[in-house]
Design a protein around this nucleic acid. Structure first.
Lengths: 256, 256
DNA sequence: CTCGCATTTCCACTAAGTGGAAATATGGGG
DNA sequence: CCCCATATTTCCACTTAGTGGAAATGCGAG
C-alpha cells in the first residue's frame, strides 16, 4: 500500500498552519480576529480558533481584552533580534555598512529573501542631518521590482530563479511581459557588470549586487540615493562604489 | 468518559513544539543542529528532525549546506517588523521618545514582557555624538533585575505578578531573599511615586514606569544614563522627567 | 577505506487533531 | 432593556496525521 506517512516527506500540518497564521499579520496590520485570519489563510474557523489559542499560550500572540482579536506579541521581535545577532554576515559587515554610508553619503542596505519579497537585515538611511540617520530592519520590498531582488535572483541557482520568475509572471498584470524582460535585463547586468541599477520608486536610484557564500543563504547588498534624476553616469559611479565595497565585504567574510 | 479532546483546552502540541524550536535560537547563537535542538527543548530527536524540516518548508529556518544545522531565516525579522509597524503604542510614542531622548540627553526605551524577560520594542541610546545614536529593537533584559521589568510587574494584575515572582524565587541563587525583597521595594516605589529606580549594570542608572491601557498589553517606559554615580537626587530628577513624559504619552494614547 | 557519531527514515500504533454543527458570547439597534 | 444578527468557541464522532523507538543511512575523522 502506497501509504504516505505523516511525518515523512510532508511537513507537520499544524505547525505549517500556525506559521501561516503568524504570517497573516502583515506590516501595518494591528489586530486580526479569528474570522479575518480564517479568511486570509483559507483555514476552517474552528481550526484557526484552536491554533490562535495555542499561539497565545506559546506567547507569540497577545489577545486583546475584547477577546475578539489578536496581535503579534513582543516575542516575535525577540526572535527577530536573535536572528540578527546570530547572523555572521550582519555581524561582520554591519559596521562596515554604517561607515560606508557616512563616507559615500548614501543609503546602504543588506537584504535576504523571504518567499517573493526581499527583507532588509539592515537598511541604513543616510541623511545630511546625521542625527536623523535611521536604521531599519525587517522591512519588505518586492523582489521583482527592486535592485535588491534582481541582484538576489542573479545570485541563486538557475532552477530556483526560474521557479520564482514563473511566480511573478503568473501574478503580475498586463505589464508582465515588459516587467519580466526588464528583470532579465537586470540579471544580465549583474552577470556582466557585477551589479544592476533600478529606479523602483520615483527619484530614487538604487544599485545592488548579490553576496554568495558557502553555507549561507544568498544576500543582496545595495546602495541608493534619493532625490536624483536617473542617469547612466550616476548609476556607473554608484556601481563602482558598490563593487568596491562588496569586494571588501567578501574579503572580510571569507577571512572570518 | 472523561476524554480530553485534542484541540480542546490544551493547545496544539506540534505547533507548540515548533515554536519552542524557534525559541531555542537565543541571541548570539548562529546555527543549531537537530541534536542540539533536541537537547535544548527536551524533544525526541526524530520529532525535532521532522519539525525542523517543516520550519524550513515554511521559510522560518534556513538549513546550512552541510545539511547538519539550521539558522533562523530572514522571515522572522519580517514578522518582527510587522509587529512593530502594527503596534499602535510604538507608532504613537516612538517619535516622541526620539525627541525626548534628544531633549533630555539620555536613553529612552519602551519594552513589553516575553515570559520572564523584558524585550525592547525600541531602545534609543543617546550619544553626545548624535551620528552614532543607535536604535535597537528586540533586545531582552531580565525582568526581575531591571527597572523596566519591575515597573512592568507593578503594572500587571496581582495574581500574575505573584506567579512571576514565584518563578524568580525558584530559579535564583542564594541571593534570592535579598533580590526578591528588592524587587518588592521597587514595586512599592512605583505604586507610591509612579516610577522605580534601579542600577542593574554598574554606572548605569535607570528609572521606569508602567503604561497600562485598555485592550493592550502592559508596557514599560524607561530612561537611563550611563557613566553616572547612583544618587537619590539624580534618580528623583530622572523620575520627574519620566513621569512628565509618561503623562504626555498616555494623553496621546488615550486621544488616538 | 573503515569506524563511530549524528541524523534521517521507517513503520506499527493510536492519541492527537480535524471540521461541520451546535452552543455560546458580544454589541448594536429597536 | 431586551432581542437579534454576527462572530467565536466548544462539542464530538471520525480517522488521519503525528509519534518515537529502532534500523538505516550519511558524514567526517583518522
Amino acid at each position: 500500500m502506497a501509504r504516505i506517512y505523516a511525518g515523512g516527506i510532508n511537513g507537520n500540518r499544524s505547525l505549517e498552519r500556525g506559521i501561516e497564521i503568524l504570517r497573516a499579520f502583515r506590516p501595518g496590520v494591528d489586530t486580526l480576529g479569528n474570522g479575518e485570519i480564517a479568511e486570509r489563510t483559507g483555514l476552517p474557523r474552528s481550526t484557526v480558533s484552536r491554533l490562535t489559542r495555542t499561539l497565545v499560550n506559546s506567547g507569540m500572540l497577545d489577545e486583546v481584552r475584547n477577546q475578539r482579536s489578536y496581535r503579534l506579541s513582543a516575542s516575535v521581535i525577540s526572535i527577530g533580534h536573535a536572528m540578527r545577532t546570530g547572523s555572521p554576515v550582519l555581524n561582520a559587515i554591519g559596521p562596515m555598512m554604517r561607515a560606508e554610508s557616512a563616507r559615500r553619503r548614501l543609503n546602504v542596505g543588506l537584504a535576504a529573501a523571504d518567499r517573493t519579497m526581499m527583507v532588509y537585515l539592515e537598511s541604513i538611511r543616510y541623511s545630511p542631518r546625521a542625527a536623523l540617520r535611521n536604521v531599519v530592519a525587517g522591512q519588505q520590498v518586492p523582489m521583482e521590482l527592486t535592485s535588491l531582488g534582481r541582484a538576489y535572483l542573479a545570485g541563486i541557482a538557475e532552477t530556483e530563479r526560474e521557479r520564482l520568475l514563473k511566480k511573478f509572471e503568473r501574478r503580475s498584470n498586463s505589464a508582465n511581459k515588459a516587467l519580466l524582460a526588464d528583470v532579465r535585463r537586470s540579471i544580465s547586468s549583474v552577470q556582466r557588470n557585477g551589479y544592476c541599477a533600478v529606479s523602483w520608486q520615483p527619484a530614487v536610484l538604487a544599485v545592488a549586487t548579490p553576496i554568495v557564500l558557502d553555507g549561507l543563504p544568498v544576500y543582496a547588498l545595495n546602495m541608493s540615493l534619493q532625490n536624483v534624476e536617473r542617469s547612466e553616469a550616476l548609476a556607473s559611479e554608484m556601481g563602482a562604489y558598490l563593487s568596491a565595497f562588496a569586494a571588501k565585504c567578501k574579503e572580510v567574510l571569507a577571512g572570518g
